[in-house]
Design a protein around this nucleic acid. Structure first.
Lengths: 241, 241
DNA sequence: CCAAAAGTGTTAACAGTACACCCATGG
DNA sequence: CCATGGGTGTACTGTTAACACTTTTGG
């Protein structure tokens, strides 16, 4: 441990240097599944640059001015932006850091590095989203139909990265349970897998996989049945750990 | 597309605002496997904070001053730091972004966000590393023996994240080939898997897996044999795509 | 009764696991 | 000739994939 005096002096000297710094933002790829189709939340930008263009929700990370005001954590910034831009209450979505995009020319305003997160929203909460103050509106867009090139900044690339991540994790992690209502049927969960992977899944085989999850205690049966068109289906719920 | 004038004006206005910004660094978890043991490259810090402590190599991302000097890409910064801190030529290691650490209090100097990368270095290049100017020395440390709590900043946490990532990818991606010399034997490759997973692998079963990779064209036999103690072994090379 | 979705069963192919065994070489 | 690592074969197991089949409902 070095002497506190020299340490403090070194820190003060470093603060005085002040090399140019980049601005840092967080951007969010907010996903849900409705009508067996994967959707991403896009805003329409109120202000330049890319005014009136579609973009991912996001904003600047708050950094305090003084030495003893460091500001907010990155996670906190992501949660705050999700709340501000969608109106959804905190903790109502699964949030995970995705990747950091720092190409030198990615923002016309100068050097802006963005830490991208993705969020998974349950379909029963999806209709509740409302536009924040820096957006003219918000919209759930079918991921398959989004024109990547028409998005602001490098947001098309960020969307692609999120898709790759989610597709890679769907079979090995419980993220699918963040894309169904609190209680769900076998077919509803299967629809989530199919929407994300973009391929059909054999109903019988999926059911067996589902059964294993029940045996492993990952899922348990819930009371009641779902009346969905034809024959009513049993409902289940995810067992959090 | 908005009018160029209003766009430019908006950008100028934004530049003038100048909210406080974080400093941004890149940190590197440089890994290799020597003597069937996974090693990480640690430096000893020449300057405060954490003077004389062990730390991951890294440094600040260069950001240009003027509007038309955006600076270097994040990837470029990571490659530059790897070269500066190890002396290894560019392109001699596999480099991949790991995670961005932005806890508000992680650096005593103020708000510093770090984009962590991990690098995989072939064992035949490992002895060539030399210390950079901001380090008193560099050392390959056995990952199992590193005292996480004794590392500078949150570097212990970053090391753990790198280990988790590499362990998760070793069975599903070709990263193991970045941890063996250009030509290698079956046993050498198996040693890499064992060092990373920390568990023994049945030689016969691994051999069969290896054979499948040869049949799939991922690996091809190379001329010559390796004289390693007892019976000489066939050597192979990875087929890049 | 019919269509459609819920739910069950059967089978072949394949990859992982455990383990027994032969081969070639340096000492 | 023998210890050691190189290299092969085999039997068992669990998972996946494809597909035929029965059951229960609404119309």
């Amino acid at each position: 441990m070095p002497a506190p005096d020299s340490e403090a002096a070194a820190i003060a000297a470093w603060r005085a240097e002040q090399y140019p710094r980049p601005a840092v933002t967080v951007d969010l790829v907010v996903l849900t599944v409705t009508d067996t189709d994967l959707k991403v939340l896009l805003i329409r930008r109120r202000d330049p640059p890319f005014q009136h263009c579609r973009a991912l929700p996001g904003g600047f990370v708050r950094v305090g001015a003084g030495p003893d005001e460091p500001g907010e954590d990155l996670e906190a910034a992501a949660h705050r932006e999700l709340n501000e831009e969608t109106g959804l209450p905190r903790g109502s979505a699964y949030l995970e850091q995705l990747y950091t995009f720092g190409r030198a020319g990615r923002d016309p305003r100068g050097r802006v590095i963005t830490v991208a997160y993705y969020a998974l929203v349950r379909p029963d909460l999806a209709p509740l989203v409302t536009a924040g103050t820096d957006a003219e509106g918000v919209e759930w867009c079918s991921v398959g139909e989004v024109d990547r090139a028409a998005l602001a900044f490098d947001h098309g690339q960020i969307l692609d990265a999120a898709m790759a991540r989610v597709r890679g994790k769907i079979d090995y992690t419980p993220i699918a349970f963040d894309l169904v209502p609190p209680t769900f049927t076998v077919t509803e969960l299967r629809a989530v897998y199919e929407a994300i992977k973009g391929s059909e899944d054999d109903p019988g085989n999926f059911r067996r996989r589902f059964k294993r999850m029940v045996e492993d205690g990952l899922i348990e049966q819930a009371p009641g049945k779902r009346l969905t068109g034809k024959r009513p289906a049993r409902v289940y719920r995810f067992v959090r750990r």
